[in-house]
Design a protein around this nucleic acid. Structure first.
Lengths: 350, 350
DNA sequence: CTGAAAGCGCTTACAG
DNA sequence: CTGAAAGCGCTTACAG
């Protein structure tokens, strides 16, 4: 005998399928079948078993069930966020994504395990390999150059995963992301349509941040299509501080601008602060736009014109695609449309 | 033989402790002991086993381990958010809390399972009773009158849980929360110190929202201490829309106000919008304060003076307390201090 | 310091 | 439609 300490740990004894079988006068196998909805069970027997299970508040032990079935019915979400090692500072956009992933999981009776840890640490955890999750969803605006080797390792290990991010050829694994190029085009076109001509871009445009660089390419494309000379591109990662610094550099550059396309809402919010402090009025003097449509986008003053990424659809597609992968069905990368949300910061409305 | 479909599901065969035992020329029990850090293992044997485990990328199967130990080393977080059934709209304050809970869990090698589902649905899931979690953390600004029967049911079931919220006598289970009364006092005193006299309170003050009503009591206490007549209290739940509606009602009431204490940042942000549209300048005409210190509090214009709740400490304490409960140690409810954050909305700074 | 063995609570092929 | 039995991969008391 052992378990003395276990008794202390589990204050209330949980009923097992044997307890139910005993009370129902059937075998434990029949209980298991009845509760799992096996059609080969007498209707009356099933009802009796279900009644007893309810009465005893019986719940299938997931550990036993998962062990036997070699499936966990659980998905793990890992964040790879570069700017901030502090999980409570995580980009609101991804928190919204997390919400929709949860919903998509719940719909399918899947559980969700999350980790905001830095990548390096998660790596050791390895949810899938410890049998706690059937697959991984990767989220975050991290530095892709750092990120990529990890993805390659995942592929090499045969881990099932889907990531949110830029969708490009030759990437390791599957990706789902917004149409960042088209998004950049659309929002830039909008500013041009408002009569803005001297437009700068705030955001990293290197291969370290492929989503930003796609947005930048869209920006360039719209400028070229309108026969305009693009203003300066100034590096920034997705944070308010970085947006403030970028706005400062833009002003310091001496470039006379009447429009700013920021690569994210957080960058735009930072720029907004800085412009205000510099006595530049948005949208009177300068039209400013963001990207993502986080909650704060409508709370700042003036509210930000931005490209909304469809987080509901994104969460659903991430889960759906991952589950295809898990069950061995064919699955592929996917590009989702982004939608222009016009608010006051661009000057289109009063 | 079965498992044909399982083979498809698990693309890569996972090594077991028997595989390692075979290669190391020891018994499986020794492998288990070595990997779990049992001191009764020869140092050399341990090193050999660890090397093989690394090479094979072996990970302990958590389902088997949990089943055997009757412990999951997992905590579940459940949200009970009233205003919004949409998880992507969840109050940013709780998302920040979620971050710090994750960190506290990671520190202890605990995993975190989350659900943004409505309470009624979670109820059936019952993470603890299915053996997936050792205990529950409950989060959310839900209606406490609806909430309470669920808490009582949890207590009756013997479920281990800790909730974030108002700490009051006679509550079912353990609670951890900020000192909302003192918080309400502090921020009201601050406005009074700034020369404001006609101060209204925006937020529900009934027993449906005990945190808000504690803040309101603090507001009343400070007003009384200063010999001032409190302005009107106007119901609002924690959302921007509700804050806008409350501000509209306040203006409609005809009460001449020079200060507003809002029960949360989201309410304050909504009020700010409405006041601006009504041509009332914050902070020149009216000092406005929030509560929570969510990220958006510093992004709005003017940035909100608010009471910061210490989410880092809160997450740590929630996890620590829950784990005490799980291991049968004595544990108790706890009140955490809130801190005044002065920004521009109160008029203290330019 | 180590091994053989029991058992955690399920699911499911197999045999009626 | 049902039962007896094997086995998922561990942990740990027991006996050396």
């Amino acid at each position: 005998m052992e378990g003395g300490s276990d008794d202390k740990l589990r204050a209330h004894e949980r009923p097992t399928s044997f307890d139910i079988a005993y009370r129902a006068g059937v075998s434990q196998s029949t209980v298991s079948r009845a509760l799992r909805g096996d059609p080969n069970v007498n209707e009356e027997t099933r009802r009796k078993i279900e009644a007893i299970a309810r009465e005893l508040k019986y719940k299938v032990d997931k550990n036993a069930s998962n062990l036997r079935r070699q499936r966990s019915n659980t998905i793990a979400v890992l964040f790879f966020e570069d700017p901030s090692p502090d999980p409570s500072q995580i980009n609101p956009f991804f928190l919204s994504m997390l919400g929709s992933i949860t919903r998509a999981c719940a719909k399918r009776s899947f559980d969700l395990l999350i980790s905001f840890q830095r990548f390096a640490q998660d790596w050791n955890e390895d949810y899938e390999d410890s049998g706690k999750a059937d697959g991984l969803i990767l989220l975050g605006y991290g530095d892709y150059v750092d990120y990529r080797p990890h993805l390659e390792q995942l592929v090499a290990q045969g881990t099932r995963f889907v990531r949110w991010g830029a969708v490009e050829d030759g990437q390791p694994g599957l990706s789902i992301g917004s149409d960042n190029f088209q998004g950049g085009r659309t929002i830039t076109e909008h500013l041009i349509g408002l009569g803005r001509r001297q437009i700068a871009f705030l955001g990293d445009a290197s291969n370290h941040y492929p989503e930003f660089s796609e947005r930048y390419r869209g920006f360039l494309s719209s400028m070229a299509a309108a026969g305009l000379e693009p203003g300066p591109q100034i590096d920034a990662i997705s944070s308010e501080e970085s947006g403030m610094a970028a706005a400062a550099r833009l002003i310091g550059s001496g470039f006379q601008f009447d429009g700013i396309v920021a690569a994210s809402d957080l960058i735009a919010a930072g720029a907004l602060h800085w412009l205000r402090d510099a006595g530049i009025d948005v949208p009177r003097d300068v039209s400013l736009t963001g990207f993502d449509d986080i909650a704060a986008a409508s709370l700042v003053n003036p509210p930000l014109t931005t490209m909304a990424q469809d987080t509901s659809l994104a969460g659903e597609k991430l889960v759906e695609t991952l589950l295809k992968l898990v069950s061995g069905e064919p699955a592929e990368s996917l590009v989702l449309p982004a939608k222009l949300i016009v608010r006051r910061s661009c000057g289109a409305k009063r």
